[in-house]
Nucleic acid binder design. Structure first.
Lengths: 182, 182
DNA sequence: CGAAATATGTCAACATGGCTGACATAAATA
DNA sequence: TATTTATGTCAGCCATGTTGACATATTTCG
């Protein structure tokens, strides 16, 4: 343990022991700031790689979700990213033009453009996911065995109540889609 | 087993039980995606308020750190935010011009511009922190009593190893600065 | 003291990635 | 057939990041 423990205090400033009361007491400074720092570093690893490809974070997000959810509809991707179709269109066009993503007509509904990564696209997506996994694995490795589950539960609880179900379904569905063996 | 997963199953797809092995096996999809979703929603609450003031996320970050670390030097703020002085200068100027932040000459070193929030600035900063605290408190409230500590440890571990110490010192220092009573 | 380093500010130009609004096309559906 | 839906696209704007060059005070060092 030693000096891990941000403030040096074993139980936070006032919230830890009163976590059940949601009144607007003192801000939960430590988690507010830690979320900022953790996320800042979390996205920084891929950024360096992406720069070499002439891509940015927007491309990363698209690549990630297309790779992870093969055959995703444009509309669903928009919903996940919560951006406009114009913003998506810009980066998606580049990814398609440069051969990282392909589009396929929907079988039932031929208006739909289902999105898939190409082998080249998958390679990049997996590379980026690998970087982020390294960081997460290192972090989890420093903590106890329950850390993965604890982190997952915390992050899920942080998501908007209404979007939470669809996010969980999305992730669950992807697990089935990407790993048919088991 | 059902297909809602995330918060449900005690041992995930493959990572939960092998969390201690840091080899680059299968990406840790769930945490990668959950970090994205959680952070996306985490910053969305303040965004709405900021929009009414004509401010954006960049202003929020500056307001936050100046409020939380009164008298912070410009150089230190740059270091924390990891942006260029030109980017900072733009938003900082607006915040100063509109009376949310003030600058004071350093006592020892008169080249320094130490940054403070005005009462008006503090009000806004606390409002924003309150929104984020609501979300965090709600999340922690849904989880067990150890959740705050677990989240803190996970987030700290996610930070770059080299920056981690300075972040922890920063947070610890701020706790002392902002709450001299105790 | 004078030179060099430091802390900050500023101008100009550019890139990325959000946004709105308007409009076009093809396919599904009522 | 008329309408709705899924998608694409053009045009322009805004926020916020970048680099590079340069200016000004002030401190520090030789």
């Amino acid at each position: 343990m030693a000096d891990i423990n941000i403030g040096g205090l074993p139980d936070g400033p006032a919230q830890s022991t009163t976590a059940s009361k949601p009144q607007s007491h003192e801000p939960i400074w430590d988690l507010i700031e830690l979320l900022f720092f953790a996320y800042r570093d979390f996205v920084s690893d891929p950024d360096d790689v992406l720069a070499k490809f002439g891509f940015g974070r927007a491309h990363h997000r698209v690549m990630h979700f297309v790779n992870r959810h093969p055959g995703i509809k444009v509309a669903d991707l928009l919903d996940v990213l919560k951006i406009t179709k114009q913003s998506l269109g810009r980066v998606l066009k580049q990814l398609v033009d440069e051969g990282y993503v392909t589009q396929k007509e929907g079988e039932n509904d031929r208006r739909q453009r289902l999105l898939y990564v190409t082998p080249k696209g998958e390679q990049l997506a997996m590379k980026l996911a690998g970087l982020q996994t390294e960081r997460i694995a290192r972090a989890l490795g420093e903590l106890g065995p329950g850390a993965h589950e604890a982190a997952r539960r915390f992050l899920v609880a942080m998501i908007d109540a209404d979007g939470r179900d669809s996010v969980q379904r999305l992730i669950a569905r992807a697990d089935r889609a990407r790993r048919p063996r088991t």
